[in-house]
Amino acid sequence: MTVALVTDSGTGVPPELVERYGVSVVPLQIIIDDESYDEGAEEASPARMAAALKEKRSVSTSRPAPTVFADLYRRLAEEGATEILSVHLSSEVSGTFESAQVAARHAPVPVTCVDTRQVGVGAGYAVESAAVVIARGGTRADAADAARERSARVTSVFYVDTLEYLRRGGRIGGAAAVLGGALAVKPLLGIDNGVITTLEKVRTSARAISRLEERAIQAAGDDEVELTVAHLASAERADALAASLADRLEKQLDGREVRCVELGAVLGAHVGPGMLAICVAPIVPGV
């Protein structure tokens, strides 16, 4: 059996891992002033999207159509795949998983679709775990189980300068409780079973970033972990946060570097410039 691995650009799998494991990535769409671009295209870079938001231009996003997945599944089968595992960001914040499911029903080879119930880097860790299992000769079912288990253990916490972008995109979920005249509040948000939820409300960005770090430390506990700091148009703050976490979690990281990445344009469009996130991913034995 030859298992092909598919994901979407919303999982933020690092390019080097995409290349190493041969992962097929379906791009989400970013729409700026009625022009649609594949996420990852130069015209839809995080920097250009962030600039468009600051300039108050029209920015929106769109999921891939089922036909995009159908075409990919067909091509992978023609190239020799006998099974496909398709791992995606939370169905609570995007219709991407649904598109994959629709296409899977008519694929020429068996397809298992996994809803990670995570967003961005958290979903990316699930894809990476599945890739490792497949590379070691594991079955499609084994890889799907690894993805689900890894995503279930991940903790993602993030800070946004304003809730306005989440409100505009209709993806504020449980965080809606802080709306109604409270958009100036600096919230800490998390992902609970695929839904964006409010963790804390603070009054200053400095306090929010401090609490963000403390929550990551608490989530790591004494476990062996991998760690990623993500940002949008806030590289200096992200680098400082990553350096502090690397020092404070030296034992739990056990020699692993803290990844520091810029969030993709599609997810970035919903959180806005200044966003900082920390993803704590406990190591799963055997993966």
Rank of each mutant, 00 (worst) to 15 (best):
P110T: 02
V111A: 03
C113A: 13
C113L: 09
D115S: 05
D115N: 09
T116S: 10
R117P: 13
Q118M: 15
G120I: 01
G120N: 00
G120L: 00
V121W: 10
G122A: 10
A123N: 04
Y125P: 05
A126I: 10
V127M: 01
V127G: 00
V127F: 02
E128M: 12
A130H: 02
A131C: 07
V132E: 12
V133R: 07
V133W: 07
R136I: 00
R136L: 08
G137E: 06
G138V: 11
G138P: 15
R140W: 06
R140D: 07
R140K: 12
A141G: 14
A141S: 15
A143F: 04
A144C: 05
A144D: 05
D145I: 04
A146T: 06
A146S: 01
R148Y: 12
E149H: 13
R150P: 12
S151Q: 12
A152C: 14
A152I: 07
A152W: 07
R153C: 11
R153Q: 15
V154A: 01
T155K: 15
S156H: 11
S156M: 15
V157N: 11
D161T: 13
T162P: 00
T162M: 11
T162W: 11
E164T: 00
Y165V: 05
L166A: 01
R168V: 03
R168N: 03
R168T: 00
G169Y: 04
R171P: 06
R171K: 06
R171C: 00
R171T: 01
G173R: 06
G174Y: 03
A175P: 13
A176H: 11
A177F: 15
L179R: 10
G180T: 11
G180K: 11
G180Q: 13
G180E: 13
G181C: 03
A182Y: 08
A182L: 15
A182V: 02
L183S: 06
A184C: 14
P187M: 10
L188N: 05
G190P: 04
I191D: 09
I191M: 14
D192N: 15
D192Y: 10
G194S: 04
G194R: 03
